[in-house]
Write a protein that binds this DNA or RNA. Sequence first.
DNA 1: CACAAAACTGTCCGATCGGTCAGCCCCTGA
DNA 2: TCAGGGGCTGACCGATCGGACAGTTTTGTG
Lengths: 184, 184
Amino acid sequence: MARNSSGFRREILETASRLFAATSFKATSLQDIAREVGCSKAALLYHFDGKDAILTEMLTPAVEALAELDTRLAGLAGDDAVLPAVEGFVDLMLRFRSAVKIIYDDIPEMLRHPALAGVPDKTDRLIDAFAGRSADPEARVAALMVLGSVPVVGASPVPLPDEELRAVLVRCALRTLDRDPTRS
Amino acid sequence: MARNSSGFRREILETASRLFAATSFKATSLQDIAREVGCSKAALLYHFDGKDAILTEMLTPAVEALAELDTRLAGLAGDDAVLPAVEGFVDLMLRFRSAVKIIYDDIPEMLRHPALAGVPDKTDRLIDAFAGRSADPEARVAALMVLGSVPVVGASPVPLPDEELRAVLVRCALRTLDRDPTRS
DNA sequence: CACAAAACTGTCCGATCGGTCAGCCCCTGA
DNA sequence: TCAGGGGCTGACCGATCGGACAGTTTTGTG
């Protein structure tokens, strides 16, 4: 064998990235990567200092881009920061989509657990309801955002009593879905 | 020892729930739970059929409530489904917050990885920018929602070219933040 | 062609995981 | 009093993980 070294490194990174995104970082073993690449586990450890080093090298560009966005926003005050922050964040996410998947695809893996069988089906129908049974792509994306954002808030510590938090969440979610919350 | 059996079961569930939420299901071993509860690992497996059974018993109420919401929404068509869906989902999430944490707290665990050092700080500042540097709780919650929702969309397969997806995401995010996207 | 460096392999290792099992303790009721 | 069963333990098991290492093949170079 003895392929081109830097090309081999890249091949390892791409394969590992695919596997990490498909399953998850923790659930993907060095054996899995080696099998997919077509080399021995020891070969991986020859090119990289360890499993963590593979992940680090894979995520570094995204982390650096986030740091760049951070410094760019630091100079903007108040309302001026909102639009650049949103656009910058969305661009970042789209540009490093595979990296994002690696971080977030622990959730689908968790949903594969027998205890949660049938949940994905129900969340699909929930998206349908959020979108008002519409097939419009924008409505579907907004619905997906609501499905994701509400639990994220729930998993985070929020200094707000449940009743107020409930009202705020409903209001924000309706705005996301382009439904005016200001009505009876 | 020989404690009250059902009380002991409840104690195990509560401790396990706390540990699962604090770290993650996979990263929490039976040893960890046993140490925290103050019994042997074998004692856990005497009361439960296995690690999965503990998780299942913990999540079952939430899964059932989700199924209930699902059937309740099934009869509603089009726009009539939106508000009940949003309110039902928010209520569900608030009611089973610990269960939600268990599913979602794989992400914070991932963010603890050395490769992602410093990322939480930057996302905190990103939330600040999303909220327009405001301390208003509603603005902070909306910002948190945006931070969560955008990557969730990125990690999901969306049948939309990147450019359109970008525009949709920015628009929806601005609506979530209560910023009117309809302007130059 | 010779030889050193690079590339790679098979094998082994310690740690940790979920789970099993024989047996001990102790309360209960006949 | 003593059999018996529920509650529980410590020791152990096989599987799997990331990683170490000595040794072998391949490659580049004088």
